[in-house]
Design a binder for these strands. Sequence first.
DNA 1: TAAGATTGAGCCTTCAATCTTG
DNA 2: CAAGATTGAAGGCTCAATCTTA
Lengths: 142, 142
Amino acid sequence: MAKPSKSVVDAWIALNRAQRYVFETIEAELKSAGLPPLAWYDVLWAIGRAPGRRIRMAELASSLTVSRGGLTKLADRLESAGLIRREAAEDDRRGLYAVVTPAGEQMLKRMWPVYAKVLRERFVAPIRAEEAAVIADALSRR
Amino acid sequence: MAKPSKSVVDAWIALNRAQRYVFETIEAELKSAGLPPLAWYDVLWAIGRAPGRRIRMAELASSLTVSRGGLTKLADRLESAGLIRREAAEDDRRGLYAVVTPAGEQMLKRMWPVYAKVLRERFVAPIRAEEAAVIADALSRR
DNA sequence: TAAGATTGAGCCTTCAATCTTG
DNA sequence: CAAGATTGAAGGCTCAATCTTA
């Protein structure tokens, strides 16, 4: 029974370290700029991407790979901060649409440069562009 | 000011998805085999790697990239389960060494096949070996 | 006063139970 | 009864405060 070779385990460890390192740097930079955590960016971005710039809670949860209960509470925090709104679905009274408010749009624009800067300095710079392409391609293949 | 190109952001997103996917599969397989979470494996493995097969709490924490407080509690759980032991350091009465018990060694041996199987099937198979090498190399370069 | 380790508070997440509507 | 969403309980993490020894 073939075990994963050492280099594969190394790749897995490296994947974890790299992910953690970049993520923690982004979080630290956002915090020191007085901005909300990356998870908030993801929510705002995912809603904005959806057709009609609105999305059902359940669908948003699965696109963010977070549990439904988790999204409900995450959305509560964003809504308290005035960055999103939940609107009743006109055709299905069980459902809600998440929508980005103007303040949410603003926040997205303020967060992006910080986020982008970290990706540029800690992800693009140390990892060459061609490698990034290989990684993106390989990791997407599932 | 150059923004990260689309492919770099794609690589970052892919990195996150891949890491999460493999991690969650490992956790699910361990759980369904009645075994402890991956974090426990990491602790046991890190102690076993250290010179003398023992390691100070603070050093263990930093090698696992977890906070000291977090490690104290994680170690509490492993110790309650009889997998590790904390021994007083003979030369510095402030310090403790974490040591793996025989039951801990056993556990490591039971967890590895499950862990390895997921890496083989979900990480090695979809990502080709040469790519894994590129990824390991690129991601380690920091 | 600093360093090793632990503790308590607070935050965020998941899971299972609940409520409402289809 | 099933599906969308929320709620409460429990688990685990971080941070700051604390205790002990150097």
